[in-house]
């Protein structure tokens, strides 16, 4: 890309020799930053497979000295930690929340994009307004309402109060505004009702934004902490809560804790690596302004 004809996006200039040197310096600096950004991930790995003696020794060692697969298998057989159950709880909660959030926000976003009138205008304003007041701030009354319903320590309590996402609705609306109306009209001519049009025509042709919103919701749900901390007890204890509880207790088994962290971030990192393309596109097309 050192030629003068590079043309991906903005800011293209003819580069002279000094420009080429600058380019190399930039690559070096970015590479160093990249190492720094990946360092915490390596440290999880290093700590998980490092013996206790090495971990607490004042000489920091980069290479793990306890590289055995048993570290992971022991983790799952430890009934005190109960990692497998926590992972299961987190999976149900995150997948449930993702499916519901996507379904609800898709319908809301489609309605707001396709049927503009005074009422939807007001709803859009209200949606933007709730974007401003995040769910975390209202955790006290949300908790009160959830416990009134008797939903403490249930998936309903974990998912339903946090599944309405103004951000997701907004992203869907912005994206669906650009959906070709001809496609919908063609389906209507064939006798499809608006409901069928939405599910059978619009949804299958909007998988990019659906993937983007799903990724962002799944990551948020899997990593959620404050709301599960309030609502989840033994029957719905999520992986983040389990890790947090062990981290803040006394007498920590460092290797075990970090092996748990390794397991905990694996699903999100995998989802992220596969779907981040959609995330980047989704945010790029809908924009923020």
């Amino acid at each position: 890309m050192s030629s003068a004809t590079s043309s991906t996006s903005a800011g293209r200039m003819v580069r002279g020799r000094s420009g080429r040197v600058g380019h190399v310096v930039k690559i070096v600096v970015l590479s160093l930053l990249a190492v720094l950004f990946l360092l915490p991930f390596y440290v999880i790995f290093r700590n998980a497979f490092t013996s206790e003696e090495t971990f607490v020794s004042p000489d920091w060692r980069w290479i793990p000295d306890n590289l055995h697969f048993s570290v992971i298998t022991d983790l799952f057989s430890d009934s005190d930690l109960d990692l497998a159950t926590a992972m299961m709880h987190s999976a149900v909660q995150s997948i449930g929340q993702t499916v519901l959030t996507v379904a609800v926000s898709f319908m809301a976003g489609y309605g707001l994009a396709r049927f503009p009138n005074k009422a939807t205008g007001v709803i859009l304003k209200l949606t933007v307004l709730t974007l401003m007041v995040p769910a975390a701030v209202t955790f006290v009354p949300s908790f009160i309402m959830t416990s009134e319903f008797g939903w403490i320590d249930s998936y309903r309590g974990l998912i339903i109060p946090v599944m309405f996402s103004a951000f997701a609705t907004y992203l869907f609306r912005q994206s669906l505004l650009g959906f070709p109306k001809e496609l919908e009209e063609a389906a209507e001519l064939d006798g499809a009702n608006p409901w069928t049009v939405m599910w059978r025509v619009v949804l299958p042709n909007s998988m990019g934004i659906v993937a983007a919103v799903s990724t962002i919701t799944f990551i948020g749900a899997w990593n959620a902490f404050l709301w599960p901390l309030l609502v989840a007890r033994d029957n719905t204890m999520t992986i983040q809560l389990t890790l947090s509880r062990f981290m803040t207790s006394q007498g920590i088994d460092y290797a075990q804790l970090f092996a748990g962290a390794l397991i905990a971030i694996a699903p999100v990192v995998i989802v992220f690596l596969f779907l981040q393309r959609y995330l980047v596109q989704g945010m790029a097309t809908s924009g923020l302004d």
Binding site: F37, N223, L257, A261, I265, V271
Partner: peptide
């Protein structure tokens, strides 16, 4: 991708690395 990927990490796990 490299600069974006910490977004996938939870605050709990990050706090664990930072704290311990």
């Amino acid at each position: 991708s490299v600069f974006f990927i910490p977004t996938a990490c939870s605050y709990v796990v990050a706090a664990m690395i930072w704290r311990l």
